[in-house]
C-alpha cells in the first residue's frame, strides 16, 4: 500500500483527511480508493474524464506522474505519493 500525503488545501474541504496507507496498483486506483473513502475528493483531483486537474500535481517519490490523462503510473508497496497544489502562474 502506498503512503499518501495531501496538500493542506484539500484538508480545508475534507477535514478528516490524514496521510496514511492507501491500496492501489496504479495512481488511478489509488485516487479511486480515496474517493470511495472520502466521497467527492476525486473530483478535486481529476476532472470528469479522469484527467489530472491543471492545478493539481501528484508526485510518486520526487517525480511528478508521467501520465496526467489516465493516471496509469504504477505504484509499489513502498511508494510515497504526494497530492499537492500545482505551482501555477508566477
Amino acid at each position: 500500500m502506498a503512503h499518501v500525503s495531501f496538500t493542506r488545501h484539500l484538508v480545508q474541504f475534507f477535514p478528516k483527511l490524514v496521510e496514511g496507507e492507501v491500496p492501489g496498483a496504479t495512481v488511478r486506483e489509488l485516487v479511486s480508493e480515496l474517493n470511495r473513502r472520502h466521497p467527492g475528493l476525486g473530483g478535486y483531483i481529476t476532472d470528469e474524464t479522469g484527467r489530472l486537474r491543471r492545478h493539481v500535481n501528484i508526485f510518486v517519490g520526487e517525480e511528478p506522474v508521467g501520465d496526467r490523462v489516465t493516471l496509469s503510473d504504477a505504484l509499489a508497496p513502498e511508494s510515497r505519493v504526494f497530492i499537492l497544489q500545482a505551482l501555477s502562474g508566477g
Binding site: S5, T7, N57, F59, G61, E62, R80, F82, L84, Q85, A86, L87, G90
Partner: peptide, 17 residues
Amino acid sequence: TNDYLPNAEVEWGHDPH
C-alpha cells in the same frame, strides 16, 4: 522552502516572484 514539491528544500524548483 516551497510548499508545492515533496521535498521543500530542493536546490532547484523554488519560485521567486
